[in-house]
Design a protein around this nucleic acid. Structure first.
Length: 603
RNA sequence: GGGGAUGUAGCUCAAUCGGUUAGAGUGCCGGCCUGUCACGCCGGAGGUUGCGGGUUCAAGUCCCGUCAUCCUCGCCA
């Protein structure tokens, strides 16, 4: 074996990748470069599986060649040799290159590897912590290489689709300014302006609206967004949106562009044909039928209103809830008489309580003695028959009810429905149920803060530009795109009238002074010829994860952070030199200093 | 900020009621082997049981604290 230093410069360079060679190449003299995936030493003959991101090719060394070769797993080597056909009994169908192998004449060591912290195999079950610490190894594994390749292909198809629709990709600042509403901002202290901070954008919202004012009537961007909030499986502190905005449009124009883009992307990146148009549903219908604003429409078991029945029943709990303005609703578990045991009912009751229910009333009409469950005694005779009729239930079913405030009832039954859908296996595979949810409420009242908040964001246009009536009853022109119960993205028709925008700010408790201070430039822009406009942004990480069948977005992000927003590989965040802190005019609090001292003492 | 789970060899896990020298598989290292592809056979190395404290004759095991990771509620316009 030789080292690269011995070789003529460039002589080691590959003629083919490790996924490329086939029977038709037999006889050719080739050079391959790659990582040592597996070694099988038979004494007189030595097999190596050579891996790169294109595939795996088996290379064979005779004793004469292998004699002084010393290979470790994950070493980077170059092999010079000849492509040979394998005998019929030695073909390996697991690899696309399995009909051939390389008979090696010379091996060069390009780089050696320490023993990796875990085996770089496809079906790995190593703790995510270790995988993230050694992400450079983890990313070498084929599943992650495939995920990122898929992501690239996906994003690329989207870009081409937007370009072909006449959209321009325009970049907006990462160093921006803090916004009072919404998520917590990531802040960057200014060196030049003592005591002042940039904020990383939660989204390019204001910039893209200003681009509309500037006349870039079709904008899009693959935009990185930052939100300093606690993490989840589908949430990272920095994430990517496919962001877009367009002028002179209404809802259906935005929907039509996205349907075109998504159909094309699914076709090009996955060869999946999606039917369009996607379904549309008003927010109020989504809540009433599914109890949630992002319904998974792949299965039934929809919520059914039982308020009327409740108000006529003798069950005081139900009756009083309806009288005090609450809701009584239920879901029917088909065949639940037998498929849901009494023990499982306990679990469902706890589940319901975890989501705020005071209890879970249930009834199995078919069980002997007029049915089982807490509701059975109120369902005798005609009462029971009318409830069954109303719910569309039979004696084989299980009926579950929640009686509470409107929001709690929706929530509990909506979550219960999803839970049962999953655990009872009611959700069919291979379906892509896209759904536009429209007409979200304009505002929500926050009891704790004692004021109104925008349901979407404060730039969302109202259905009624006059904003007359009770804020609670106003519909907005916000919309979400939902796929199989996941919220993929959201958008709205925006406010392009300065007077209306000011009114909204006032309603949100942002006074004239604060408006000027926070949004002066934006309100100003609206007075220089703002076209009607609207837009949408899709969470790319989620969409890519979904299309790969993953329920965690970590595996479509090359360098994700942990639940405590740390990067285990580069160990961010980190302390910095005291001078660096001073330079940006920052002083650490006593508690921060104490924490640092405590950690330093441990090390 | 709250709740739950986990933490033992490089990796994945086991270790009975608190009781001998903490085991297995895999990986790694050495030897043998000419057709393997989860190669095989023989041998070997490898442990601060996350960290700190406590209870006990005795702690991987029980208690308290702490750290990390995962899931989740709040939060995420």
């Amino acid at each position: 074996m030789t080292n690269t230093g011995d070789a003529q410069r460039g002589e080691w360079r590959r003629t083919h990748t490790c996924g490329e060679l086939r029977s038709e190449h037999v006889g050719q003299s080739v050079r391959l470069n790659g990582w040592v995936a597996k070694r099988r030493d038979h004494g007189g003959i030595y097999f190596v599986d050579l891996r790169d991101r294109y595939g795996i090719t088996q290379v064979v060394m005779s004793e004469a060649v292998a004699g002084d070769v010393k290979l470790s797993p994950e070493d980077v080597i170059a092999v010079h040799g000849t492509v040979a056909a394998r005998g019929a009994e030695n073909v390996n169908d697991a690899h696309e290159t399995g009909k051939i192998e390389i008979v090696v004449e010379r091996v060069e060591h390009l780089s050696s590897s320490k023993v990796p912290p875990f085996e770089l195999v496809d079906d790995l079950d190593t703790a995510i912590e270790t995988r993230l610490r050694y992400r450079f190894c983890d990313l070498r594994r084929r599943p992650l290489q495939r995920n990122l390749a898929h992501r690239s292909k996906f994003v690329n198809a989207m870009r081409r689709a937007f370009e072909d629709e006449g959209f321009l990709e325009i970049e907006t600042p990462i160093l921006s300014r803090a916004t009072p509403e919404g998520a917590r901002d990531y802040l960057v202290p200014s060196r030049v302006h003592p005591g002042e901070f940039y904020a990383l954008p939660q989204s390019p919202q204001i910039f893209k609206q200003i681009l509309m004012v500037s006349g870039f009537d079709r904008y899009y961007q693959v935009a990185r967004c930052f939100r300093d909030e606690d993490l989840r499986a589908d949430r990272q502190p920095e994430f990517t949106q496919l962001d877009m905005e367009m002028s002179f449009v209404e809802e259906e124009d935005v929907f039509a562009v996205w349907e075109k883009v998504i159909v094309r992307t699914f076709k090009e990146a996955m060869n999946v044909d999606l039917p369009i148009p996607f379904a549309r549903m008003r927010w109020s219908e989504a809540m009433e039928r599914f109890g949630i604003d992002k319904p998974d429409t792949r299965f039934g078991m929809e919520l059914v209103a039982a308020d009327e029945w409740a108000s006529q029943s003798d069950f005081q709990v139900f009756k009083s809830v309806v009288e005090s303005g609450g809701r009584v609703m239920g879901i029917v578990v088909k065949g639940g008489k037998d498929s849901v045991s009494r023990g499982q009912m306990k679990g469902l009751e706890k589940f319901a309580k975890d989501y705020g229910a005071k209890g879970l009333a249930w009834w199995k009409p078919g069980e002997e003695g007029g049915g089982a469950g807490p509701l059975a005694r109120w369902c005798e005779g005609e009462q029971g028959e009318s409830l069954k009729a109303r719910m569309g239930a039979t004696d084989d079913d299980l009926l579950l009810f929640c009686a509470d405030s409107k929001n709690t009832t929706w929530r509990v039954l909506g979550e219960l429905r999803l839970h049962l859908g999953k655990t009872l296996g009611l959700i069919p595979e291979g379906k892509w149920n896209f759904l536009w949810v429209t007409h979200f409420p304009m505002f929500e009242f926050d009891e704790a803060a004692g004021r109104w908040f925008s349901s979407h964001h404060p730039f969302t246009a109202p259905e009624d530009w006059s904003l007359s009536g009770d804020p609670a009853s106003l519909d907005s022109r916000a919309y979400d795109l939902v796929l199989n119960g996941w919220e993929l993205g959201s958008g709205s028709i925006r406010i392009h009238r300065q007077d209306v925008q000011q009114k909204i700010f006032e309603l949100l408790g942002i006074g004239a002074e604060e408006q000027k201070e926070r949004f002066g430039f934006f309100l100003d822009a609206l007075t220089y010829g703002a076209p009607p406009h609207g837009g949408f942004a899709i969470g790319l990480d989620r969409l890519v994860a979904m299309t790969l069948g993953l329920d965690n977005i970590r595996d479509v992000i090359p360098f994700p952070k942990t639940a405590s927003a740390s990067d285990l590989m580069c160990e961010a965040p980190s302390t910095v030199a005291p001078e660096q802190v001073e330079e940006v005019h920052i002083e650490l609090s006593a508690s921060a200093r104490a924490e640092l001292a405590r950690r330093a003492a441990k090390d």
